[in-house]
């Protein structure tokens, strides 16, 4: 499993676009929003939590189809399925690799982009914690969507159609947490919900994703 993680990370680094692309997309999104709603901090501040979470969501979505598509094309997926690794474990590891290459850089960059959107400093910890808790679920659900659509022509569009509705609970609690942080309220409730959703997702979705992969391989 560690070998698989190392290989995926190495591939992401060498093939390029692994670490940087998601963050670059995130930056562009955050830079474009003020053009749409105006530069006024009074207009930006209330929507900043939502923009930041939507940006993270979309940046995450961009690289989802790569989780399994490349391995499917070159036959690695067949070989992995016949290897001693349990496919559920392989799915979890590949989701983890996706999170390290896209989720983690987003979390590091998010406070910076929060400042761009006039997010008050008091909300920054809530922002980081919410992303830290929420993005693993995004990667895992994305891996599920990628497993369902692997090998389909025009799979990319379908992938977003399938995955984005699954992101709704995470999005709701994630933004709510930042909003409460912004207003100085207690963030405990959304935090617990967010952590619960992520924990449940990480525990159960690998099985669904592995089942979908097995179906797609035959």
């Amino acid at each position: 499993m560690i070998a698989l993680l190392k290989r995926d990370l190495r591939l992401a680094v060498r093939a390029g676009g692994g670490f940087g692309l998601g963050v670059a997309f995130f930056l562009i999104l955050c830079a474009l929003v003020p053009f749409g709603v105006g530069p006024d901090s009074g207009a930006l501040r209330p929507i900043a939590p939502g923009i930041l979470w939507l940006g993270a969501l979309l940046a995450c979505l961009l690289s989802l189809d790569r989780i399994f598509a490349l391995d499917h094309e070159d036959g690695s997926l067949d070989l992995l399925a016949t290897s001693p690794l349990p496919l559920e474990g392989a799915v979890a590891v590949k989701a983890l690799a996706h999170w390290i290459t896209t989720g983690l850089p987003l979390i590091v960059a998010a406070p910076l982009f929060g400042i761009l959107l006039h997010l008050p400093g008091a909300a920054i910890p809530a922002l980081i914690v919410s992303l830290l808790l929420g993005t693993p679920a995004l990667s895992m659900l994305g891996a599920f969507g990628a497993a369902v659509t692997v090998g389909l022509r025009r799979g990319g569009l379908l992938l977003s159609l399938l995955v984005l509705p699954l992101y709704i609970p995470t999005l709701i609690f994630g933004t709510e947490m930042i909003r409460r942080g912004q207003e100085g309220g207690s963030i405990a409730t959304p935090l617990l919900f967010l952590a619960g959703i992520t924990a449940g997702t990480l525990a159960l979705i690998p099985f669904a994703a592995a089942a979908a992969l097995r179906i797609n391989l035959r």
């Binding site: 509705p165 609970p169 959304p190 669904a208 979908a212």
Partner: peptide, 28 residues
């Protein structure tokens, strides 16, 4: 057959998340 299998898996996962969304929205 693959379509039936995959949509069934999606329906299962989707049901859980539809229900989750239902309560998340209530909170929201």
């Amino acid at each position: 057959d693959s379509a039936a299998d995959l949509t069934a898996v999606l329906c299962l996962v989707g049901s859980v998340f539809a229900l989750l969304s239902r309560y998340a929205v209530l909170f929201w």
